[in-house]
Simulated scan of single mutants.
Amino acid sequence: MPVSCLDSLPQNHVARRNFKSSAPHRWLSCFRRGFVIIKAALLNHLPLPQGAFFPEPWPTLTPQVHVSLVTLSTA
């Protein structure tokens, strides 16, 4: 639903709370965008575009993993 629909919701509605904390999402996935560009080039008889890979940066905070000691006894 468009963002403008949030205005009609009560202040304590769960959709309003979740929207504020959510990160912006892509309109198209990277794969789909590349596929559409290649398809458009082929349909318009244009040369295929040269792509480039620009990865997103790694998260700055890594989660802490706690591993407990597990021992196996042979009985």
Rank of each mutant, 00 (worst) to 15 (best):
P2D: 11
V3K: 13
S4H: 02
S4P: 01
C5W: 04
C5R: 10
D7L: 07
D7V: 06
S8Q: 11
L9N: 02
Q11L: 13
Q11F: 06
Q11M: 00
N12C: 01
H13I: 00
H13Y: 01
H13G: 01
V14T: 05
V14I: 12
A15N: 08
A15L: 15
R16A: 02
R17C: 02
F19E: 07
F19D: 01
K20N: 03
K20Q: 14
S21T: 10
S21W: 00
S22A: 15
P24W: 05
P24K: 08
R26L: 13
R26A: 15
W27F: 09
W27R: 14
L28I: 07
L28S: 05
S29R: 06
S29I: 01
C30F: 05
R32G: 00
R32S: 13
G34W: 02
G34R: 12
F35I: 00
V36M: 12
V36Q: 08
I38K: 11
K39D: 10
A40S: 10
A41S: 14
A41P: 00
L42W: 04
L42T: 10
L42N: 04
N44K: 15
N44V: 03
N44H: 05
N44R: 12
L46F: 08
P47R: 06
P47I: 04
L48V: 10
L48P: 01
L48D: 00
L48E: 05
L48G: 01
P49V: 03
Q50T: 15
G51I: 04
G51W: 12
A52R: 11
F53Y: 15
F53R: 06
F53E: 10
W58S: 11
W58T: 08
P59I: 01
P59T: 03
T60G: 08
T62P: 03
T62D: 07
Q64P: 01
Q64W: 06
Q64D: 08
V65D: 07
H66A: 09
L69K: 14
L69C: 06
V70Q: 10
T71V: 12
L72H: 15
T74L: 15
A75I: 07
